[in-house]
Design a protein around this nucleic acid. Structure first.
Lengths: 150, 150
DNA sequence: CGTCGGTTGTTGCAAATGCAACAAAGTTCG
DNA sequence: CGAACTTTGTTGCATTTGCAACAACCGACG
């Protein structure tokens, strides 16, 4: 059976490692760029949804967001419809960082896809979206305490 | 341009999160399973190579290995040919954990590839190996302090 | 031989990560 | 309504993670 776990893990760690090093000069700590871009693209998003999108623990996301808020990169506003929720928005300062992150990510994406034809790139993207959908179910289940039997 | 960074990151975090939760009952802490399987498959491997294979910082690998040694899961022996190097081997205890990890990983792999034909699975695996090769160069360069311009 | 660049491994910080356990607000349904 | 369950967010703790900086060894080249 074809094995995809290892290259996916290795590529993800490599790309994340590169980004973390490169974003130090933006004074972004490890992982923070992930949250920043998602808030930029979905203003008003809430913590729980962000954590689910990124597949990180909600407490991890909570603290990353606290840090970003303390550093003046994003702000939290109480949701008008649900007092539990806090909506997330970029500050002006945060908005200035977004294009740089995008440019870096686009570059890494391009490096990752070197030698791929347009058709291959699109096919790979479609495959990966299917894989993500496949694994999301199990991720949520295991996160919520369910046991898988194998 | 097709975007592959995000699904790769999300899938990797999801799979890693699942494995870490499931391997708690083997008394393996976060990430340790990665090192264990590689040592199982390449007895005598050294730290530096392990870190490069996994795309983690060598200090991270060093401490994971120290912990695994302390817990009696693997052992380090001085290399006969190079006094700098320490070769890694599983202990009997470590060897008993390997099949379980393999079974879990195979299951996750199968879940990830649900709905994929055999041909699609193989193609995706080939694509991912190409991506890994593409990104490894940049990862090594950035890790060694080089700047990319984009 | 000896020094000098590359390899391999280690500690010292500082920080992120995530499981438990909780709190508070919402929702469902008798 | 109101109790039970779910959603959303938070702290406490233990741990991993990784950049700097170092030390020891190797190998090549004058």
């Amino acid at each position: 059976m074809a094995e995809i776990l290892r290259p996916i893990g290795a590529v993800a760690r490599a790309l994340d490692g590169i980004s973390n090093i490169e974003f130090k000069e933006l004074e972004l700590n490890r992982g923070q760029y992930l949250y920043l871009v998602r808030v930029a693209e979905s203003p008003g998003i809430i913590l729980e949804r962000l954590a689910t999108l990124l597949k990180v623990d909600k407490t991890t996301a909570a603290r990353a967001i606290q840090k970003l808020e303390k550093n003046g990169i994003l702000e939290r506003r109480p949701s008008p419809t649900d007092k539990k929720q806090k909506q997330l928005f970029l500050t002006a300062k945060g908005a200035t960082l977004y294009p740089t992150i995008q440019r870096e990510n686009a570059y890494s994406n391009q490096v990752a896809l070197q030698g791929f034809s347009t058709a291959e790139r699109e096919q790979l993207a479609r495959y990966l979206n299917r894989v993500e959908a496949n694994i999301t179910t199990d991720w949520l289940a295991v996160k919520h305490g369910q046991h898988r039997h194998y």
